[in-house]
């Protein structure tokens, strides 16, 4: 039992670090909130689509930028797509490099484009391995018989309402993802536990 709790804590900390380090943004949180018991693999499925899309586009970009005469319009179209799909899953750092990349395209700056390609490849491989680690941790918890929950999108009122509900769940570990609270940074996770001595 304690093993599961420890894994759950690690998951919370790891997820929080991905937000704090800017790998993920609120959009990823939104995806997580769309996942529940009836579609337990939603996030993995969407992220897998992103991996496929990104790898195809990065290949296309390497090819297009390897040509003696570069078709900047084509390069820009690929970057535009990558920008769109990275923002769809909340891969914030990939998304940011895409902005700079599009500027280099517009200026027809070959050196800039090549540099941006390296950067975006780097950011992509980082976020890919981070997400794989995250999914691995979730799998481990599920395999050990634990469960995973997220409840983002909380405002002051809903926290109040929720507390009423949570108070009924004696001794249960609750993972709360406080998202839209002014004084907390996005993605910050808090583990609350009802103190058994209190009841």
């Amino acid at each position: 039992m304690d093993g599961i709790v420890q894994l759950q804590r690690q998951l919370v900390d790891y997820t929080a670090s991905l937000f704090h380090e800017g790998f993920l943004d609120d959009q990823f949180n939104q995806l997580q909130q769309l996942q529940d018991e009836s579609n337990p693999d939603f996030v993995v499925e969407v992220v897998t689509l992103f991996f496929e899309d990104a790898e195809r586009l990065l290949n296309e970009l390497s090819k297009a930028l390897g040509q003696p005469s570069i078709d900047f319009k084509k390069v820009d179209a690929h970057v535009h797509q990558l920008k769109g799909s990275s923002s769809s899953i909340g891969a914030q750092r990939v998304h940011r490099v895409c902005f700079a990349f599009r500027n280099s395209c517009e200026e027809q700056n070959v050196e800039g484009c090549l540099k941006n390609l390296q950067q975006v490849k780097h950011e992509y491989s980082l976020v890919k391995s981070k997400l794989e680690t995250l999914f691995g941790m979730e799998q481990q918890i599920l395999a050990a018989g634990g469960s995973i929950s997220r409840c983002g999108w909380l405002d002051a009122t809903s926290i109040f309402l929720r507390r009423q509900t949570l108070l009924q769940l004696k001794g249960t570990l609750i993972l709360v993802n406080f998202f839209q609270i002014g004084e907390m940074s996005p993605g910050q996770h808090v583990i609350c536990r009802q103190d058994p001595k209190a009841s």
């Binding site: 304690d2 909130q33 929950s149 609750i174």
Partner: peptide, 23 residues
């Protein structure tokens, strides 16, 4: 009755999925 909340914890078994806001 007022319950206290604390950070961290030990003897716990599961995390609950709460979707009331979505509902």
């Amino acid at each position: 009755m007022e319950s206290r909340w604390s950070e961290g914890g030990s003897s716990t078994s599961s995390i609950i999925i709460e979707k009331s806001m979505i509902k």
